[in-house]
Amino acid sequence: MAIVLIDADIRAKWPQGQCAHSPGSPEELAIIAIDLLVKELGTEGAQNFMNQMFLRYSTGALSNA
């Protein structure tokens, strides 16, 4: 497994507010992304989206690539 460092400044706005983040790791970036997905799609919509993405990276799908 590789060590990945992230250097990013993320600013997001929506009608009820805004946020700014500077993630330094994939884990921090994932937390930010999930938070924004829930704001955009709601909890169920975000879960469905994530399930679709995880299916893309399932063991079977990766071995067929």
Rank of each mutant, 00 (worst) to 15 (best):
R11L: 03
N64W: 11
A20Q: 09
T43N: 06
E40Y: 09
A8F: 00
I32M: 02
A61P: 00
Q52W: 02
S22K: 13
D35S: 14
L36V: 09
A61V: 00
N48A: 11
N48L: 12
F49R: 12
L36N: 01
E28N: 02
R56D: 04
Y57S: 08
G24R: 15
I6M: 09
L36S: 07
W14S: 12
S25W: 08
S58A: 08
C19W: 00
S22G: 08
C19G: 03
N48S: 11
T43K: 14
K39C: 01
E44F: 05
V4Y: 10
A12Y: 10
C19E: 03
A20F: 05
G42P: 01
L62M: 13
E27V: 15
I10L: 14
V4D: 05
A12P: 05
P23C: 05
A46Q: 08
A8D: 00
P26I: 12
A2S: 09
R56P: 00
P15A: 01
D7K: 14
R11Q: 11
E28V: 06
L62S: 06
G24H: 14
Y57L: 12
M53G: 00
N51R: 07
E28I: 03
Q16L: 14
G24Y: 07
E40L: 15
I10D: 04
K39G: 00
F54Q: 11
V38D: 11
N64L: 14
V4M: 13
K39E: 06
A46V: 11
S22H: 11
L37G: 03
A8E: 04
L41Y: 15
A65V: 07
T59G: 08
S58Q: 03
I31S: 13
L5R: 15
E28T: 02
S22N: 07
N48R: 13
L41G: 07
P26E: 04
F54H: 05
Q47K: 14
D7T: 09
A20N: 04
L37W: 05
T59Y: 10
R56C: 06
S22I: 08
R11H: 07
E28K: 04
A30N: 05
A30R: 11
N51T: 01
A30F: 08
A2L: 14
A2Q: 10
G45Q: 04
S63H: 09
I31Q: 15
L36K: 06
T59P: 02
C19S: 09
Q52F: 03
S22C: 11
C19N: 00
P15F: 00
L55G: 01
C19I: 12
Q18N: 00
G45M: 05
W14L: 12
Y57G: 05
T43D: 10
P15R: 04
A46W: 05
A12K: 11
P15T: 01
R11N: 03
M53E: 04
E27S: 10
P15G: 01
I6Q: 09
S25D: 07
L37E: 08
C19R: 03
I34E: 13
A20C: 06
Q16T: 10
D35N: 14
D35L: 12
A46M: 11
S58N: 07
T59Q: 06
M1R: 06
A8P: 01
R11Y: 05
S25G: 10
L55N: 07
F49Q: 10
L29I: 09
I6E: 07
C19L: 09
